[in-house]
Design a binder for these strands. Structure first.
Ligand code: FES
Ligand code: FES
Lengths: 141, 141
DNA sequence: TATAAACTTGACTATTTTAGTATGGTATAT
DNA sequence: ATATACCATACTAAAATAGTCAAGTTTATA
């Protein structure tokens, strides 16, 4: 079980914007250089973030992206669902009455994985962007 | 982020043994039929479980596998580490002083992922096999 | 003692997911 | 004008996952 780069980079990039936020929008080029993420990959990610109203864009020279809300209002769970990074712990389709492996009933472990998923989602709901930017004085980039 | 079948099946199969535990060892063939998991795949998984002393084996006809400890004593985290299903939330090497993407310092999101990993591992440390088998009266297989 | 059930080991492979690239645009500040 | 920066779609290489295959060894039981 590994967290994919898409979700991690999305949070990383948005935290970068939150940190360097000001009058002017932040360009992907700057984020790319500061965070060491491919520019082309960032464009792909930000296309999704924009579609889901996490950011707005300013085109043209000196353009870039801005957060639509204050960092406190942007939860990690919002970011993750925007880039379609979702946690799947169960082996079955959740809504379906059927279990995994085509069995007719939910398997013996189903509740365990379900509970885990709940735990993780709770964590992502509690955390927001400002939690990441708070320690501006620390030597993190 | 998806939980792999290796970890899920391992827990599933061990819960099956816990449930049908008795004098005789439980054969992989029975587990395969009851849980709908490929016999060949189960063999691979149980080879690891045995190496890590989660189960003992009885060879030959009427043989099979038995738990080495009581279900209460077998934590999900034990099972996961036995089959090498480990959670990776961070993008960097944990021990290294370096951050992800070859940066010299830990990135702005590092602590967040680290905290998440801690949460998940806590969950797996709290849960054991007997938690799964308790509800024998429910209509789960 | 023949036989079948069941564990043991290592290598192999197909599928899926991830993590990007590549290409060819459009909009706008200077 | 032109460079900067967003926008959109398609493609691809690499890694991880989810198994399969082959060739055994061991032992209960008929
Ligand atoms: S995980 Fe849902 S039925 Fe097995
Ligand atoms: S996750 Fe550890 S440095 Fe980025």
């Amino acid at each position: 079980m590994k967290l994919s780069t898409k979700g991690r980079y999305a949070v990383m990039a948005l935290a970068d914007i939150a940190k360097f936020d000001g009058e002017r929008p932040v360009s992907l080029r700057d984020i790319s250089l500061r965070q060491g993420i491919s520019l082309l990959y960032l464009e792909q990610i930000f296309s999704m973030l924009k579609k889901n109203q996490i950011v707005t864009s300013v085109r043209g020279s000196n353009g870039g992206y801005k957060l639509t809300k204050s960092p406190e209002q942007i939860k990690i769970s919002n970011i993750f669902s925007a880039v379609q990074e979702n946690i799947k712990t169960v082996g079955c389709k959740k809504e379906s009455k059927k279990g995994c492996n085509g069995k007719s009933a939910k398997c013996i472990t189903h509740n365990l994985w379900d509970e885990l998923e709940l735990h993780i989602n709770e964590f992502f709901n509690k955390k927001n962007l400002s939690d990441l930017v708070k320690g501006k004085n620390e030597n993190r980039v």
